[in-house]
């Protein structure tokens, strides 16, 4: 696929920024992520080189989960808002973005589970 990278960032009030980044570099694909349990920026971001099977499987599910989402989900009638943001960057410079403030697509949980599963597969958290 002509994707350069996919970045998922979630900022919830009680923890450090959560990052999951899939970088496709042709020969070497990489996933960078913060541990789900980490709460301070003292804890480093993990990096793992991943094989094509993991990438293909992740991308297939990822696009099937997000492709019907709206661009934004905003709920202002709330306290302690969690903000999230997904950016898909393509090799041709184009990008697609999804974002939300305390509001989520109904299958958002499926995306988080996919990320958990992928991290577990690469021996992360």
């Amino acid at each position: 696929m002509d994707i350069r990278r996919i970045i998922f960032i979630k900022k919830s009030p009680f923890r450090m920024e959560y990052l999951f980044l899939l970088q496709l570099n042709g020969n070497e694909n990489m996933i960078r992520f913060t541990g789900l349990e980490s709460r301070t920026d003292k804890e480093s971001i993990n990096s793992k080189v991943v094989n094509d099977t993991i990438v293909t499987n992740f991308l297939e599910h990822f696009f099937r989960i997000v492709s019907n989402w709206n661009d934004t989900y905003i709920n202002k009638n709330t306290l302690d808002a969690t903000t999230w943001n997904i950016v898909i960057e393509y090799k041709n410079g184009k990008q697609k973005e999804y974002q939300g403030v305390d509001s989520y697509p109904i299958n958002f949980d499926s995306l988080e589970r996919l990320i958990d599963k992928t991290i577990k597969e690469i021996g992360g958290d």
């Binding site: 696929m1 002509d2 994707i3």
Partner: peptide, 9 residues
């Protein structure tokens, strides 16, 4: 206009 992932799927 957008992506090639549609072709893949």
């Amino acid at each position: 206009t957008e992506t090639c992932n549609v072709y893949a799927l």
